[in-house]
Amino acid sequence: MFNAVSKSPWVVHFNCNSCNGCDIEFLACLTPHYDVERFGILHIGNPKHADVLVVTGSVNNRNARVLQNVYNQIPDPKVVVALGVCTSSGGVFAGCYNILGGVDIVIPVDVFVPGCPPRPEAMIDGIVKAVGILERKRKGEIFPTAPKPLCKFKPSEEQSAETTAIKEEKTV
């Protein structure tokens, strides 16, 4: 009874810059086939009621602040689950002129779920893992943020230079 946090994690879902692949897979978790509500997981639209922030997509200049705001509005204890490869490195968008990188450069991430997109099973697994962290956070055990999966794609020197140039152009 007293580990109620882990019995009713309410999830708010934030789409940063995703191609919607992860989002559709995440919504599939709610369907009768996967039915996350049997774990007490509710998909709610408001960070103020949430315990778990599920992020999809990479962070760009525009949405970094929004992500930060949504994160701030979640009451403690809270955990962040990052779905898909974009959230860790930028994925296919990495190196794009407007992309800052993974979610972890803006907010601390507790669980990364790899895949492009991850399977719903993997997502549920990730959330259940996050819920364990949530419970430990409630007890006051500070939990280290998740180790970031290795990023295989690295923009070449030229690409980086190009991106910087575009950015500068825009600011001028």
């Binding site: 103020k48 929004v66 949504v70 701030n72 509005q73």
Partner: peptide
Amino acid sequence: VRLPYLCGENAESTV
């Protein structure tokens, strides 16, 4: 204290 929920698009800091 937090600012109201405006889909994260608050003009001011939410804290």
